[in-house]
């Protein structure tokens, strides 16, 4: 498995979706949260990219913003990519759900919703996964407690 050159890929995506790429270097591609779903669809469906397998969805809290991290792999082309997006709202962070594209995102997005309180638009069944209904707060946020 080789990491795809995300710098070049970033240039390519910036041409297709104007204003969608925040930054692109050798390690990762950071896109605007508004364009996330379009970019993900493009990555999945473009011949030659064929990202058919989403391995990890996770999130991180940097206080100024939440970062959504996606790691995807193409089994056909044998390459991988790290895609990120940033959410600047603390009270109501919202991002498009990638479950319609990759079923693998289903439980991980539910977990992130549970522990970070990030809402996924278009998720078929957004409920808490690990904690119980009625639990107060989102424990993986830095300002919890």
């Amino acid at each position: 498995m080789v990491a795809i050159n995300s710098e070049e890929l970033g240039k390519r995506i910036a041409e297709v979706f104007t204003g969608s790429v925040v930054s692109a270097d050798k390690e990762m591609l950071v896109v605007d949260s508004v364009h996330l779903f379009q970019v993900a669809t493009y990555l999945k469906e473009t011949p030659g990219l064929d990202f058919d397998y989403l391995t990890v969805v996770t999130a991180a809290d940097y206080m100024e913003y939440f970062e959504m991290i996606y790691r995807m792999v193409s089994l056909k082309q044998n390459h991988s990519l790290i895609l990120k997006t940033r959410l600047y709202s603390r009270d109501n962070p919202t991002v498009a759900s990638l479950t319609p594209l990759w079923r693998a995102a289903y439980y991980q997005e539910r977990e992130i919703f549970d522990l970070f309180g990030i809402k996924f638009e278009g998720h078929p069944d957004l409920r808490r996964l690990l904690l119980w209904e009625g639990f107060n707060g989102h424990p993986l946020r830095r300002d919890y407690l």
Partner: peptide, 14 residues
């Protein structure tokens, strides 16, 4: 429904 089950479970745990 699963939603109702979740809410009932949450109340029970709380």
């Amino acid at each position: 429904t699963p939603q109702e089950a979740d809410i009932a479970e949450g109340q029970l745990i709380n």
